[in-house]
Amino acid sequence: MEFAKRMEQFGEGVFSRLAEMRKERVAAGKNVIDLSIGAPNIPPAKRIMEAMAKAVMDPANYVYAISDRKAMLDAVARWYQRRYNVTLDPDTEICSLLGSQDGLAHIALSILDPGDIMMVPDPCYPIFADGPRIAGAELYYMPQKKEHDYVIQLGDIPEEVARKAKFMLVSYPNNPTAAMAPIEFYKELVAFAKKYDIIVLHDNAYSELVFDGREWGSFLELPGAKEVGVEFNSLSKTYGLAGARIGYCLGNSKVVGMLKTLKSNMDYGMFLPIQAAAIEAISGDQSIVAETRAAYERRRDVLCDGLIEAGWQMDKPPGTMFVWAPIPASYEYSEAFVKDLLDKTGVLVTPGSAFGPSGEGYVRMALVQSEEDMQRAVDEVKKSGIFA
């Protein structure tokens, strides 16, 4: 059998390797506190589950959706108007995604030809780079450095790269670094994209998970943003709907329209009961959003305060559901530290090397366990003496 040469770019995913490490430890009768995969464990509000359950019991909802229902598109438009003060045309400026991961993979196919340049953050969530690779694009990594608070320095991008680039992706609050960019960055981003005729994708999956009284908005609030690009948003973390796979592409009508055309040839739309759940999530009582944010903030405090006390020097994240922390100076590679940490403490985290060239030397921890489990992780690290 012969397979596509593009598959030579992809090995076994890091999360599959971490899952195997977890499986082996559990099989040996040892405990694991899994902080590796960002899989939310806060369930949806009861009203959202009830809306989906009711729709699931309707036989009429088992046809192909084909396209997004008008009721859902209208609800999304109202959500963006209410939450971000952004006006969107439901018919031309909104497209559902079967989760942001689906959209991040497919939008590259609708914009990039083989050999085109795509600019992605470094470090970055793996699919940010993998989607363009599937499309045959060449990657230019935009460094996110600690000395700049992990904010991309657009002025450092070489002129020849900027002129050749066709598409760029940015994401704040950021996965994996948890950084937040100032409004000045976004103003510069719009001007940069206009100057070099670059399509911008802003991934805004963590807009509701910001802590210590901070606030966050939308890229599309910026004057001129809709002229240069789109934003992705997701219901996975905010509303506990990760497994339902609900995301949206919003903004520039040409970009949204091209993605819709591609998707019409690749899938039959979002399952209608899931559309019902999405409508209920973004249209009903929004108190769950503040409750979810508070839960992640408490988990962050328990984990970070405890690990800092144990000798692990790190910054407390201002947002997201992740902690980005440097590995001890005695380790050269993050994967080696991850293995040692698991062996000595039972705490499983993700090596920073999984997130691109600049990720080496760090690990990412996901705030996806209870406060009690976070405290257990802290206790195990303290007991191990790994940071003594």
Rank of each mutant, 00 (worst) to 15 (best):
L104Y: 01
M119G: 08
F219V: 09
P328Y: 06
G311N: 07
E280M: 12
K164N: 11
G115A: 14
L98I: 04
S334Q: 07
S100N: 06
V86W: 00
Y331R: 08
S287A: 02
Y125A: 14
D203N: 15
L98D: 11
E231H: 01
E24K: 11
K30V: 10
K23S: 14
A162P: 05
T261L: 06
K46D: 15
Y80V: 00
Q375W: 05
K383E: 02
K145P: 02
P43V: 06
I111Q: 09
A388G: 12
E221W: 00
K164S: 10
Y186P: 08
L272Y: 01
A205W: 04
G224D: 13
D130M: 06
D156H: 12
V347E: 12
D156W: 02
C124K: 04
K382M: 13
V170I: 14
V161A: 05
F211L: 10
K344Y: 03
Q101E: 12
A377L: 00
I37S: 05
D301L: 04
P43F: 03
R214Y: 09
Y196H: 15
E221Y: 08
V255Q: 02
D340N: 11
L262S: 10
R214E: 13
P126Q: 06
L154P: 01
S334R: 08
V349G: 11
E8H: 06
T345C: 11
G103S: 12
L250K: 00
T177E: 14
D305A: 09
S330M: 04
F128A: 00
G38V: 08
L307S: 05
T261I: 11
P326I: 04
Y362D: 03
S334E: 13
Y196Q: 07
S36M: 00
G257C: 12
T292I: 06
D34S: 13
D68F: 05
M258I: 02
D203C: 05
K226L: 05
E8G: 12
A244G: 11
G99D: 09
S36H: 05
E188Y: 00
C249T: 02
A45H: 10
E93G: 05
S234M: 04
R133N: 10
D379N: 13
W79M: 13
T345R: 06
L341M: 15
S171Y: 08
I157K: 09
